[in-house]
């Protein structure tokens, strides 16, 4: 059991390495993507595929069916749960306006025409605004339904 002995082992190693690489890119995406919604893409697709590949590699390498069944369950639950959690997080992020609107080509979900000038969309939920007085005025304007420049 030392080293790579057979074709089976080579295949397993290729699967494991590819899966690990995809999980690495998922982590990179979390760091590099600009906002929550884009990060959720990284957290679902390469991540799920990476876990699946690692499971396949493990199933080839491990002996005995009982381990394989367990890996199958892990894969199934990964496929079922990753989209749900990503959806819940994106929904909350959108509603709390953690969206980089300047990077959106189209936003058909948007209801009002108000410009969101207080938040850029990539700060933490409870981050204090950079200029509190300015931000307070802006958010009051947004609460008034976007009546810009009506108070003077």
């Amino acid at each position: 059991m030392s080293g790579i002995d057979s074709v089976e082992d080579v295949v397993a190693v290729v699967f494991l390495l590819a899966g690990a690489f995809l999980c690495l890119t998922a982590g990179l995406g979390l760091l590099r993507f600009p906002d929550v919604l884009a990060r959720m893409h990284a957290g679902t697709k390469p991540q799920v595929l990476g876990v699946l590949l690692v499971m396949v590699g493990g199933a080839i390498r491990l002996n005995g069916w009982s381990a394989t069944w367990m890996l199958l369950l892990v894969a199934a639950f990964q496929l079922l749960t990753a989209p749900v959690s990503a959806h819940m997080i994106s929904r909350v992020a959108y509603r709390r306006r953690h969206v980089r609107r300047d990077l959106l080509l189209v936003d058909e979900l948007r209801t009002g025409e108000t410009q969101d000038r207080v938040r850029r969309g990539d700060e933490p939920a409870d981050a204090p605004p950079e200029e509190p007085a300015q931000a307070l005025v802006e958010s009051r304007r947004e609460d008034d339904g976007g009546a810009f420049g009506q108070e003077s």
Binding site: L22, L28, K45, P46, L103, L109
Partner: peptide
């Protein structure tokens, strides 16, 4: 599943900020 995994993986590695849309 395979193509999207590869696509997003590539997207994380290449330079530049991706533009997105909500439809």
């Amino acid at each position: 599943l395979v193509t999207s995994g590869a696509q997003v993986a590539w997207q994380t590695l290449r330079p530049g900020v991706p533009r997105s849309a909500i439809i």
